[in-house]
Nucleic acid binder design. Sequence first.
DNA 1: GCGACAG
DNA 2: ATCTTGTCGC
Length: 238
Amino acid sequence: MDVNIDQLKKFQLEIAKSVVLEKKDYPLEYFEFIVGVDLTFNTNEGIVCFSVFDMNEKKMEYFFERDEVKFPYIPGFLAFRELPLINKLYEKLHKELFNDKKVLFFIDGHGLSHPRKAGIATHFGVLNNTFSIGIAKRLLYGKIQDENFFENKQKLFSFVIDQNFSQIAVAVKTEYLKRKRIMNSKVLYVSVGNKLNLKNSFELFVNFYKKYDFIPTEEAHNYLQKIRKKKEYEKKLF
DNA sequence: GCGACAG
DNA sequence: ATCTTGTCGC
């Protein structure tokens, strides 16, 4: 698959221009659905899962969609690989379930903590005009503000800053949430996707966990792993 | 030129 | 992301 990196960079810069950075804070109760988004791959086949938590009914429902994915993974251009499949499921659920309701998306990956401020969470949020937050397991861009973050056991979170010393994400030790690891990671990076500010994004992430005791992207991730195991099991029976 | 590099 | 054994620790 031939890829024009310069063209993709241009597109990302356009996405970054359209980000809505909200000044006011939204409480968790403002949202009617909280959705976790994650994908799994089997060579050329991708499966996306939305873990949809209904804030009124307090019930979780899982949806998934599969399709061929040919675009390769290139650091900094994850959205071009994963968004087509994500959007396929989004458009379906937008019609059948979300409609004009207030929906907050937690997406596996970065938002504004990206070389061109256009990580997958931002890319998704801008294209669909939705609230979104990026939840990543590893850093892509920027550095930890508090030098002692990793060494000091007392420091359970720190801002991530870019070259201009702007705060672009919050690094959170999973220990802060009383968890040894989350999706095999000891630190999570929370960043703005779209229509929110960083402090509010971090608060929504933490408050949701404290109240409901699960992380949306992890739920989607675990669901996909179950699908994989089930598939392997059926394969063995043939 | 070299290293870094979400999923 | 996925592949994949043993191994360290609670």
